[in-house]
Design a protein around this nucleic acid. Structure first.
Lengths: 225, 225
DNA sequence: TTTAATTTGTGAGATATGTCACATCTTTCT
DNA sequence: AGAAAGATGTGACATATCTCACAAATTAAA
């Protein structure tokens, strides 16, 4: 029986050649699960001893704030998730919810740690990922609080276009109120701002389908808050 | 000559017994520098190949946002700094400035990495620290944007009292405008809120000396935004 | 010590966004 | 298909906070 891990991005993504024996270890201690759009993958506050690898799809990472649910990032496959939990409390410190149909690989923490200690490259890779996340969090926080809504919304649209979907046309995987929870704004404000963007011929929208028609202006808005 | 690293918290802090040879390596490749209150330790945008260990004192970590300088965290010794930079770009992604007289140990990146790969415990320790920072950043971001000013200011005062100085009386190491840059508020707003706290007998202030007289209420304010 | 620079204290007015309220669409479930 | 739940438009109003302005007090520099 062919070990499915061999073809999995878990391995490719880390740009690491795992040894055969390591491959086998991974193969024997993981579980691939499919999630439907909207399904919770990790729930904040729940005990966990798995590292999560998002193989396919897209998910939102969110934590419960003082008054509402705060989306901290939106990630697309392939990527690891739940690392901070894993090394820390064993209690999930945030929730992850699929926003598109997704496939997730649950990897046993023990196996993951063993891999980490046996494979130096893999270790460096994970270290680097964590560093990047931290910096990203800092930057986001600074932008979000200093820019005003239009700027933040522009950011999000550009994020969709440039990183998540890599296209000027895409279907919003989030509701307007979720976008609000992401950029710290009320649902109504997001709605009004989107209408303005349409009015100003920056985007076209049909339902949740978005087409960016004036990316240059959008970037200006993103920068000038 | 006695290797000063032996007594340094670098080692203690990590709860790791470094081997003698590792100690020596560290001893030969580091430089201890003293900074005065207000001095920049790391400057965003500058090339760097050192890991920074804050031995003594206190420092603010800040990044330049769209419109103003954003303080992302305030740290006290002993702690590592600049890790994300180190593993990533080699260009400092944020600035660090001493807010109290401090002592910093610059450790050569190569040596640090070698240590990391040779000492599994040390590696885990650093990994864990990074995870904690990331989570902390998420939580902060959610609080800051969802609470209103009084709540955030209360947070900061409690942070000083409980984590940074571990006392109900302390001297603010930041100006009011810096506190504003930390909690995303204007200097004037901070000032007014502090006056209110004094009026409501929550704190006493003489210059920058603060004494928390009603911590319970302060915590309530912190929670209820 | 004198001067300059930086902080702190306070007021009045402008404004971006939140909040509430309802109508209209969509999607989901039975 | 029909009902229920959720998502989207849009208005009017309240309000927390920013901005500008200027004086007093503190700290640093010359």
């Amino acid at each position: 029986m062919r070990n499915e891990c061999i073809d999995c991005d878990c391995v490719l993504k880390s740009s690491v050649e795992l040894k055969d024996c390591q491959m086998e270890m991974l193969g024997g201690h993981h579980a691939v699960v499919k999630f439907r759009k909207g399904d919770p993958v990790i729930k904040q506050g729940v005990f966990s001893t798995n590292v999560i690898f998002l193989r396919k799809g897209m998910a939102k990472v969110h934590i419960t704030g003082p008054s509402r649910e705060q989306i901290v990032r939106l990630v697309k496959a392939p990527t690891y998730l739940g690392l901070p939990t894993t090394f820390g409390d064993k209690i999930n410190q945030y929730s992850v919810t699929a926003v598109l149909d997704s496939e997730v690989c649950f990897i046993d923490l023990g196996v993951f740690k063993k891999l980490l200690s046996e494979n130096r490259e893999f270790n460096s890779y994970i270290l680097l990922e964590l560093c990047k996340s931290e910096l990203e969090a800092y930057r986001r926080c600074a932008s979000r609080t200093q820019k005003q809504m239009r700027g933040n919304l522009a950011d999000v649209l550009l994020e969709f276009s440039e990183h998540l979907f890599e296209s000027d046309q895409f279907t919003l995987p989030l509701s307007q109120s979720d976008i609000g929870n992401w950029v710290d704004a009320g649902r109504e404000s997001i709605n009004r701002a989107l209408s303005e963007f349409i009015q100003d011929d920056i985007i076209e929208m049909t339902g949740r389908k978005v087409k960016i028609t004036n990316k240059k202006l959008l970037k200006t808005i993103s920068q000038n808050g």
